[in-house]
Design a binder for these strands. Structure first.
Lengths: 335, 335
DNA sequence: TTGTACGCGTTATCAC
DNA sequence: GTGATAACGCGTACAA
């Protein structure tokens, strides 16, 4: 059953049915009621494809999460929180959300072509896109608006993004450890192909410098935003006897905590730990983790709203949104 | 630029371009190469809406996850694993994945109508749909094929589903606790509006009965598949001095473990714990959790394949797939 | 307030 | 192996 069929049953023309569906004011109440009841009775669904064909809009937003499985699967509830924010906002704005999950390789031209099809989605949100990613270089040729969650590297300054001030976050975390008297402060980074990891490391160094403390590269380990990276990173650090650790994420911190415990260290007495994110694992660890809380759900919501504004040309590119973070003090630092 | 434009540039007709795009064999190699190069050069994307209009297929699968936020956000990496399986399979089958996240209320007719629009998605996958959910009663009127992940209640026996044998899982978990000498075995359930919780409880009771042990209702607490439910559930159980706990999920078990520790109980000496799922938190707990491993990613993959088979009418409803589980013994039980 | 007529970009069916 | 043409179902001038 299509518009035409509904129209016949209601004794009106196709256009009138269309007007009813699209809430046009130019329909008499009597006609509207009659049409609505037929629509209800026939369980009519407008054909989205036909509509999209003429309106040149699908009202679908694409979300691309190209993180490798080991990150997507193991970063505690970071991604669920992000998805929750994205999903809630798309629904509130009456859009649908198309999701592209998992790694994309250079060979998979077919997939990249599909993702960037301007007739399928009205806009795209990229989550944690690394600068070595095959999609990264194709962004400039994209014909629909897009928003990145997490700041891209400087060469993509024309891009819209929603992020947090990771440099400041790294500084605050490290300053806290300095303030409580720690001097041999270690750092386990995230993937360095993401600015988040980069910036948190920069913040860590800033704070050390500002306090007149040396930057000891034996106390800095490159990691991956995973529990395993935290665990093995800590094992690497132990011989250099840190008295504190700033981990690039709570999941990393939890892995490091486990390694420290297994080595017989007491936390926080022998080792203070600060994480980043404030996801579930921060509260579930023993001791609970001091951390830098970031508004993960908000990042998803704000990115979605921004994208929709771009789609409707209510704002123009590039837009850069930076959301606030907050130090949350728990038992893993003592005090 | 559309088919017509490509056709002009390549000096052929629209139909020929269409044939090239759809890999029809009835095109000479010379023509095909010419057309392909124009397509490449113009960065042409076929209009999906126009194609869907005539083919009556969108090649989009809808995934509905109506879990309340506190479950979706807090069940460790259960949902990421499921999503990973769903995403991987949809990609492999050359479909796109549309996602509907979050609670749906009775009032939101608009949303329910959108989700069930047969012109938007070719089929639907419902994840953890509770029997008190507004969508539950609408399933029979759905005009596109659908697959449920996790078995629905008996009144929906006409539905396709992919699940595991939760009764047997509950039995195996409880039998293990009995085998190692436990007698006062408690159980914290999941949401009882889901058959998973129901069946695991049934399995627990079966095992007790088979061993000639009494079913003590003071040792059974109704929970919610969350860490908090496990934590508070354990507090409720402590006065009745259980010597073992079978928790409906690992996340629940982790919460219970924390409560037990805080009460001064040693695990596994004073209390043995078995969880369910084998998600990350099982390995990250101290001690690591004995658990019933279920193939979460596989559930997503199999459900997707089944749905696509239904869409192409390669199989007919109802299909019921039951995947295997496995007891994984770790330190939380001793031994 | 309602109806008519055209176009959106593709696939499918024929004819050649 | 290729081209012309008729749908597919909707929105929207424009006319009435």
């Amino acid at each position: 059953m299509d518009l035409e069929g509904i129209a016949r049953k209601a004794g009106v023309s196709r256009s009138t049915v269309s007007r009813v569906i699209n809430n046009s004011p130019n329909v008499s109440d009597r006609t509207r009621q009659r049409v609505l009841s037929v629509i209800e009775q026939e369980n009519f669904h407008p054909n989205i494809a036909a509509r999209a064909l003429v309106k040149r809009r699908t009202d679908i937003i694409g979300v691309v999460i190209p993180s490798p499985a080991n990150v997507f699967l193991s970063d505690n509830n970071y991604y669920p929180m992000l998805l929750s924010g994205l999903g809630q906002a798309t629904r509130a704005l009456d859009y649908a959300m198309l999701m592209w999950l998992g790694e994309v390789t250079h060979d998979d031209q077919h997939l990249m072509h599909k993702i960037s099809n301007p007739h399928l989605t009205d806009g795209l949100i990229f989550v944690s896109l690394t600068n070595d990613h095959p999609l990264y270089t194709k962004l400039s040729r994209l014909r629909i608006p897009f928003v990145m969650i997490d700041r891209p590297f400087a060469d993509l300054d024309y891009a819209n993004y929603v992020s947090i001030d990771n440099v400041r976050g790294g500084e605050v975390a490290t300053e806290h450890l300095i303030r409580i008297g720690r001097r041999r402060i270690a750092h386990i980074t995230g993937m360095m192909t993401i600015t988040d990891a980069h910036d948190r490391l920069a913040g860590y160094k800033n704070a050390l410098r500002a306090a007149g403390l040396p930057i000891d590269y034996r106390l800095i380990v490159e990691g991956q935003f995973t529990y395993e990276a935290g665990y093995h990173g800590m094992k690497t650090l132990l011989p250099h006897q840190p008295d504190a650790l700033f981990a690039a994420s709570d999941t990393v911190a939890a892995g490091a905590l486990q390694a420290a415990k297994e080595a017989g260290l007491r936390v926080p007495e022998d080792l203070s730990i600060v994480g980043f994110d404030d996801v579930d694992i921060a509260l579930q660890s023993n001791p609970a983790l001091t951390t830098i809380r970031q508004p993960i759900r908000d990042k998803g919501e704000v990115a979605t709203r921004l994208l929709v504004d771009l789609i409707h040309e209510r704002v123009s590119s590039p837009q850069h949104v930076v959301l606030p973070t907050e130090l949350v003090v728990r038992q893993s630092c003592g005090g």
